[in-house]
Amino acid sequence: MNILFRVDSSFVIGTGHVMRCLTLARMLKEAGCAVYFAMRVGVGDLCDEVESRGFPVFRLTYDGPLSQEMDAQWTIDVVRGFPQPIDWCIVDHYELDRRWEENVKGYVRRVMVIDDLANRPHECDILLDQNYYRQAQQRYHGLVPSSCRLFLGPKYLLLRPEFEEARQSAPIRNGQVRRLLLFFGGSDPTNETEKALHALKELDICHLEVDVVVGRANLNRHRIESLCRERGFHYYCQINYLAELMAKADFSLGAGGAAMWERCFLGLPSAVTVVSENQRQSTEDAAAYGSVWNVGWHADVKSGEYSDIIYRAMASSEQLKRMSSKAFELVGSIREYTVHPVVQALLEG
């Protein structure tokens, strides 16, 4: 099978779309598929990162606004360059919808969509939304064809092998906070990491070990590294062992999105800041379930709020234990399948 991913990353978009596509791409490659990426070049893109993982990248270099029709035509031109048909085009992009998919579908055998907004119609054969929502089954009603196969909820999380391995050895958490993890996504465009670091500066936390993780797309990473060096915190940039740090941590400050579910999968209690609109509902629903604390919208969160949250966590061992248990309950501690159901569906065609 030939698989083409259409996905972007940037300082504004973030890196989450590409990272979850890379996880699915690895699974498909291991199943014998030939996998390619079509990505737009820009500040904070992960084109080189994708290529370093062994996947060829077709780059779109275009300054200024890009209409869906133009984007679709560029993708079609990429597809036409293949000597064999593209069996699946997998699109993970908030700016593309049914108009793009209808154009591209005439040149590929099938289309899959990865989404979590449920705010626009799609013309696709498979749709994956790995987030938890209280009304998950109703969200895509009328937005996809009746024949579309829906994979909804955290049981379909796209997890890298490191998370499966870390879950096997993850300790039972006792609610004590001795190690703190800060990770607000690969790009952290609202710079929550620095807010949290300034909060820690004001606290008496000499007993606390702190891990701070950023991506190369973080434009503030050098200043963050300097702050970490001043305080003796552990600084990491663009690592491939985040699961190991999550498993070691007792509490985490982070953003919503895919990393929130990864923390839940490892039973790591966390306070979640909503850094983009697409994270709002899933964070609220996860908090209502009891698996995270919802800090709220990033613009309303100051350093002082992070200080309060850290103090609260250190004084709330029973709450943290319950949060860890609810996180496991929501996501499921161990995968029950050997082949991811979405991969199986793609292979079956």
Rank of each mutant, 00 (worst) to 15 (best):
E262C: 09
D8T: 09
A25M: 12
L46R: 08
V41Y: 04
R160K: 13
T190K: 03
E164I: 12
I334D: 03
H198G: 06
A217F: 12
A166I: 03
V212M: 03
G142F: 09
R178G: 13
N220Y: 15
D63T: 14
D97A: 15
Y337F: 15
G185Y: 07
R312P: 01
V57A: 01
E123P: 00
D87F: 13
M70H: 15
T190Y: 06
Y62F: 15
L347P: 00
L245M: 13
L158N: 12
A217C: 05
H222D: 09
I205G: 05
M39V: 09
D63N: 14
V91A: 08
A327M: 01
R109K: 15
N278R: 05
S316Y: 09
D71S: 12
M19R: 14
V295K: 02
K201H: 12
P161A: 11
F163L: 08
L159M: 10
R80C: 01
D92E: 07
R109P: 01
L242S: 06
L158K: 04
I86R: 02
G175P: 05
S147G: 07
M27L: 15
M70Y: 13
V295F: 01
A31W: 06
Y241I: 00
L266C: 01
I334N: 04
S9M: 10
S226W: 07
R160V: 13
A243N: 11
R178C: 08
R99T: 15
G254N: 12
A288L: 00
D308V: 14
A217R: 08
V144S: 01
T61G: 05
E348F: 07
C47E: 12
I224G: 00
Y62R: 15
A199Y: 14
T283I: 08
G267E: 04
L96Q: 10
H207N: 10
R109E: 15
Y241W: 06
H222V: 05
T193F: 02
A299Q: 08
R40P: 02
V213W: 07
L117F: 12
F82I: 10
A258F: 13
D77V: 12
S307P: 01
Q137G: 05
I309M: 07
R160T: 14
H222R: 10
V41H: 07
T23L: 00
A34N: 15
L117G: 11
D308G: 04
L208W: 06
L4T: 13
G256C: 04
P269G: 06
R26D: 14
V78G: 08
Q138K: 12
